[in-house]
Structures are given as structure tokens and as C-alpha cells.
Deep mutational scan, measured.
Amino acid sequence: HNLTITQGKLFFHYNPKLCLSEIHKMEEVSGTKGRQERNDIALKTNGDQASCENELLKFSYIRTSFDKILLRWEPYWPPDFRDLLGFMLFYKEAPYQNVTEFDGQDACGSNSWTVVDIDPPLRSNDPKSQNHPGWLMRGLKPWTQYAIFVKTLVTFSDERRTYGAKSDIIYVQTDATNPSVPLDPISVSNSSSQIILKWKPPSDPNGNITHYLVFWERQAEDSELFELDYCLKGLKLPSRTWSPPFESEDSQKHNQSEYEDSAGECCSCPKTDSQILKELEESSFRKTFEDYLHNVVFVPRKTSSGTGAEDPRPSRKRRSLGDVGNVTVAVPTVAAFPNTSSTSVPTSPEEHRPFEKVVNKESLVISGLRHFTGYRIELQACNQDTPEERCSVAAYVSARTMPEAKADDIVGPVTHEIFENNVVHLMWQEPKEPNGLIVLYEVSYRRYGDEELHLCVSRKHFALERGCRLRGLSPGNYSVRIRATSLAGNGSWTEPTYFYVTDYLDVPSNIA
């Protein structure tokens, strides 16, 4: 807008934040220059609390790290170098490059900038070799853009010569660093050979998330399962459950009422301010606690030095998902009996873990797994792929695949051998790939016309006998059925096997 004052003059007093240069501009645009008398524009009460600059400061050096910015700028000295009290560095987070010096300023003089007072450097006698002032900004957020400017702080001049310097606002972004852990990993099994893994992005990506790394490792069953005799009275049979499938998407929606109208769909109840505040506090606490764990609990591995020492970490090797089922080394339970199943799973520490690289999504279907087997899954978020990966501390989750139908069934015939004193040795093959492992066998036998009897055969007993022995049988026709019990439950009964026990007292003698 054009402003013209045809008559009258300007009068400025007691404006401590208004620089004289701005008042002189007002004289020019209003056409009143030359009308004012000496005392109409006070030299001592206008701009006496402001830094009124008329020179431009330029930054000469900028260096960044993930949490620091090192700045240096060209030296500046007023005509009387004693008038320079120091520099004021202003900075704040700036997602967009549209910041002005006066953003967030209120009537009390406060604003949204963080201000650092910096002492002037030592003055050199040689004007050509003056030290460049600077400042190291610490405690910054990774991968965050900051708006920065600097200006001088000078003393009051009796001659009211307006001098000083100020830089333009520059924008500097800190470097990326390792992201925080992925949030809320959930693993479920939808079949006997697959596990579905879902997660949420890290709360602090500290860069642009480029991919996720998912490692999985087959877990050995508890050692007590191999040692305890679950045929003993009072000892509860062990059981394991597989990871249940995901709930429906509708039930997972946030901010939804727990109660549904019987007449149909209901609208979600909005969260109160107290609920939102509580969630923010919980989120802040979780982030602080995660940072504490990362800094205190997890110790970084030592990389190899120039002395030739090897990095103890196993090298990563990509495998196809079809090879995942046989990740671990199978060892027989008892070496003397080769027909026992290889369900003991000690994992070799030198073995390469299978892994998958996930790009542009937060889910993965891990296939080719062994049925009813526990897996430990390790999830890392990465925001750099080359020249070397920059990934987060791992988040861990466990899951067990679903049982395989008929995996616990005894394959092959049940054979028998009759000894003296009416002892019958029953023999059968253990299931080759049971659900988890076989903890015991149930032997059901009966003599024709009598009630059915049951015998429990422990895992250890089966390994020693290759089956079991029935003792003290009365003469007669017998039928026997056997079924295995694994961590997933009972298998199917075998087809009945028949044998006849004679009275050993009636056996004919070869003595003449």
C-alpha cells in the first residue's frame, strides 16, 4: 500500500525493539523526510534493546553428524571492536523451508527459537588472519532439518551509529543413524509349514526405512522333555500350542467401542483428552525405555581390526524358502538304536541362519518350516543398504507352526516275539517326523474274553527296548493296539495285532 503524509511529521519514542533503520525507511515511504526535528525521533529510546544489523554474515563451514552440527561463519568486528559482546545463534526444527525470524513471537518477546549466546573469538592483530567464530550444536535429532541463523550482539553506541551483522536463515539436516526397533511384532501360524509375521514401523526411523531383515531359527525343545518319565503317576503330560491366527481386521481397528449394538453396526467412541494424553505418555515412556535398553543392555560386537582377528559373527547367506525346513542338525536320541526319531534339535552355532529381506511392506510369510516346531524370529529395521547396512537392534518374537495331521501315527506293522515265561516283546517304529517329539506310547492289549488293559511306555523305555515287553501273560489269544502321544496330543491307534500265548508248562520236552 502507498502511504503519503502531505502535512505533519513523524514522532517515535520509547520503541526499544524498533531499529532506527526501520524508522528511516518509514520517513522515505511516507514522504516526511526532512520535516522531523532532532528530538522527534529519539536516538536513545528507539532500538536500544534490539540488534540492528546492516551487514550480512556468511557461514564459512558446515559439518553434520547424526546428532551434531558444527558451524563456522566469517569474522565480524565493528569499528570499535570492544562493542562486540558476542553472537546469538538461533535454531529450531523446520520440516519445511518457510521459516521466518519472527515465527511464534508474542507480545512478551518470546519466540519459538532456541538461542545460544556465543563469546567472540580472540581478536588477531592481523586483519587478514582473524579467527572464524563458530559453535557445535549438540543433542539434535537424527535425520531432522533445522533452520539456523546467527547475528551479532553489540553494545549501545553513544554516537548512535547503527552497526551489526546478521546471516540469512539456512537449512541444515542432520545425518541418518540406526533406527529404533520395529514396533509390535506379531507372529502367527496359518499352516503346519508357515508363519505369518506382521509389525509396525519404528517410532524413530532416523532416516528413510529402506528394508527390513527377518531372521528365523528353529528352537530346540526343553531338555526336561527328553529326561522326564511322563508315565509316572502324578506327572502331567506336557503340551505345546501353536500360535493362533490373526483376529479379523475389524476387531483390530483402534479407537473402536468394545460393545456392539445388537441391531447392527455401531460407531466408534472418540477417545477423551485424558485417554489420548495417557497414550502419549505411555508411548514416550516406551521410547525412553527402549533407548535405555539399547544403550545399557546391548553391547556392540567388536569388529575385526587390522591384526587379522576374525569377526566372530557368522556370515549372512541367503537361502531359498524351500530350504528352511531342514535348518537344524538332527541327532538321534540314543545312538545305539537307529530307529528312534531325530527330534532332539541342538543347533550348531556355526550354522548360517536363513533370512529374508523385506522391502516396502511390514509383513512376511515364512514358508518351508517344520510342522509343530518353535521358531525364534528376529526382526531388524534398516535405513541404508549400501555401502553397508545400517540397521536397528533386533526385536524378537516366537511362534510355533501348526501340527501336521497323521504325523504322530505309527507307520509300519507292530511285530512281536514270544519268549519263555510268557513274555512277549512288542516292537514298532517311532514316527519319523512327529509333531514336536514323542513323549510316550500307549499300549492297549486284551486277552479274548477279558477286559482291555493299558500300559504306558516312556520315551526312554522305548529307546532301550525298541518297544516294550509284556510279562506274566496268561495263555490265550491276544490283540494289541499302540498309539503315540506327542507334544500336540495323541496320534491314531494302530491296526490290531494278534498273537497267541501258550502255557509254557505244557511245552513238550526233548528229553527222552
Results as ranks from 00 to 15, higher is better:
residue 413 P to I: 15
residue 385 D to K: 08
residue 415 T to F: 09
residue 227 E to Q: 09
residue 338 P to L: 11
residue 317 K to H: 11
residue 383 N to G: 14
residue 207 G to E: 00
residue 321 L to H: 08
residue 286 R to Y: 02
residue 353 R to V: 15
residue 365 V to R: 05
residue 429 Q to M: 10
residue 397 V to L: 10
residue 465 E to I: 10
residue 291 D to Y: 03
residue 313 R to G: 06
residue 502 T to I: 04
residue 462 F to E: 02
residue 257 S to Y: 14
residue 476 G to C: 00
residue 277 L to C: 01
residue 392 S to T: 00
residue 510 N to P: 12
residue 425 H to L: 09
residue 489 G to A: 08
residue 417 E to P: 06
residue 417 E to C: 03
residue 360 N to S: 10
residue 345 V to T: 06
residue 407 A to L: 12
residue 362 E to Y: 09
residue 316 R to G: 05
residue 425 H to Y: 10
residue 509 S to M: 09
residue 405 A to S: 04
residue 334 V to P: 12
residue 499 F to P: 01
residue 233 K to I: 15
residue 430 E to V: 07
residue 441 Y to T: 03
residue 217 E to V: 07
residue 288 T to L: 12
residue 392 S to P: 01
residue 381 A to W: 00
residue 224 E to P: 12
residue 498 Y to L: 05
residue 307 T to G: 09
residue 392 S to L: 00
residue 433 E to L: 14
residue 434 P to A: 05
residue 303 T to F: 15
residue 322 G to L: 14
residue 422 N to C: 06
residue 242 W to C: 04
residue 213 L to S: 07
residue 318 R to E: 06
residue 277 L to N: 12
residue 298 F to D: 01
residue 218 R to E: 12
residue 269 C to T: 05
residue 425 H to C: 04
residue 283 S to F: 12
residue 222 D to A: 11
residue 273 D to Q: 12
residue 292 Y to M: 03
residue 221 E to P: 06
residue 229 D to I: 11
residue 265 E to W: 12
residue 375 Y to A: 11
residue 394 A to Q: 13
residue 336 A to C: 10
residue 434 P to I: 06
residue 488 A to Q: 15
residue 331 V to T: 09
residue 329 V to Y: 15
residue 360 N to Q: 13
residue 383 N to S: 06
residue 248 S to E: 00
residue 358 V to W: 15
residue 499 F to L: 10
residue 340 T to H: 03
residue 474 S to Q: 14
residue 275 Q to C: 07
residue 343 T to F: 13
residue 475 P to S: 07
residue 363 S to D: 15
residue 332 P to T: 09
residue 429 Q to K: 15
residue 305 S to A: 08
residue 387 P to D: 04
residue 501 V to I: 04
residue 393 V to Q: 01
residue 223 S to C: 08
residue 440 L to F: 11
residue 325 G to H: 05
residue 284 S to R: 14
residue 453 L to G: 03
residue 269 C to Q: 02
residue 406 K to Y: 08
residue 443 V to F: 01
residue 419 F to Y: 15
residue 207 G to M: 01
residue 457 V to A: 10
residue 339 N to V: 10
residue 472 G to Y: 13
residue 427 M to W: 09
residue 433 E to W: 11
residue 313 R to K: 14
residue 286 R to S: 03
residue 237 L to N: 12
residue 509 S to I: 15
residue 440 L to H: 14
residue 232 L to H: 07
residue 364 L to M: 14
residue 427 M to H: 15
residue 343 T to W: 04
residue 292 Y to G: 03
residue 315 S to C: 06
residue 278 K to S: 06
residue 460 K to M: 11
residue 226 F to R: 13
residue 302 K to C: 05
residue 474 S to H: 13
residue 426 L to A: 00
residue 260 E to R: 13
residue 207 G to D: 01
residue 351 E to T: 13
residue 291 D to T: 02
residue 385 D to M: 12
residue 503 D to G: 02
residue 342 S to C: 10
residue 371 H to E: 15
residue 452 E to A: 12
residue 329 V to F: 15
residue 284 S to N: 14
residue 367 S to L: 08
residue 498 Y to D: 14
residue 504 Y to M: 05
residue 226 F to I: 14
residue 278 K to G: 03
residue 298 F to M: 09
residue 500 Y to T: 09
residue 262 S to D: 11
residue 438 I to L: 11
residue 367 S to G: 06
residue 438 I to M: 13
residue 367 S to P: 10
residue 410 I to A: 15
residue 388 E to T: 09
residue 506 D to E: 04
residue 360 N to V: 08
residue 271 K to H: 10
residue 340 T to V: 09
residue 228 L to H: 06
residue 416 H to T: 10
residue 436 G to S: 14
residue 504 Y to W: 11
residue 288 T to E: 04
residue 363 S to A: 12
residue 378 E to L: 08
residue 493 W to A: 01
residue 380 Q to S: 12
residue 333 T to F: 03
residue 500 Y to R: 12
residue 381 A to C: 01
residue 371 H to T: 10
residue 351 E to V: 11
residue 447 R to M: 04
residue 465 E to K: 05
residue 244 P to E: 13
residue 256 Q to T: 12
residue 448 Y to C: 14
residue 244 P to Y: 13
residue 416 H to W: 12
residue 359 V to G: 07
residue 358 V to M: 08
residue 282 E to T: 08
residue 394 A to N: 15
residue 438 I to R: 01
residue 241 T to A: 12
residue 278 K to D: 14
residue 204 D to Q: 12
residue 343 T to V: 11
residue 257 S to E: 06
residue 383 N to I: 07
residue 221 E to S: 14
residue 211 H to S: 05
residue 397 V to T: 02
residue 258 E to V: 06
residue 357 K to R: 10
residue 395 A to W: 04
residue 258 E to T: 10
residue 208 N to Q: 05
residue 212 Y to F: 09
residue 206 N to T: 01
residue 307 T to K: 04
residue 487 L to T: 06
residue 354 P to F: 09
residue 283 S to L: 12
residue 377 I to A: 15
residue 262 S to W: 14
residue 311 D to M: 05
residue 268 S to P: 14
residue 438 I to C: 07
residue 301 R to S: 10
residue 509 S to V: 15
residue 339 N to D: 12
residue 225 L to E: 04
residue 212 Y to V: 05
residue 329 V to Q: 06
residue 263 A to S: 12
residue 327 V to I: 06
residue 222 D to Q: 15
residue 433 E to F: 15
residue 302 K to V: 09
residue 290 E to L: 01
residue 434 P to E: 04
residue 492 S to A: 04
residue 319 R to Q: 12
residue 216 W to F: 10
residue 361 K to V: 05
residue 461 H to P: 06
residue 457 V to Q: 12
residue 300 P to A: 12
residue 381 A to D: 00
residue 503 D to E: 07
residue 417 E to G: 12
residue 272 T to Q: 06
residue 438 I to F: 05
residue 330 A to D: 11
residue 296 V to K: 11
residue 415 T to Q: 12
residue 291 D to S: 03
residue 218 R to A: 05
residue 206 N to W: 03
residue 425 H to V: 15
residue 397 V to F: 11
residue 485 T to C: 04
residue 377 I to T: 03
residue 317 K to V: 05
residue 274 S to A: 15
residue 235 L to G: 04
residue 231 C to N: 01
residue 486 S to I: 00
residue 476 G to I: 00
residue 275 Q to F: 03
residue 345 V to H: 09
residue 347 T to M: 12
residue 488 A to F: 03
residue 383 N to Q: 07
residue 249 E to A: 13
residue 495 E to V: 10
residue 460 K to T: 14
residue 301 R to Q: 14
residue 324 V to D: 06
residue 436 G to T: 14
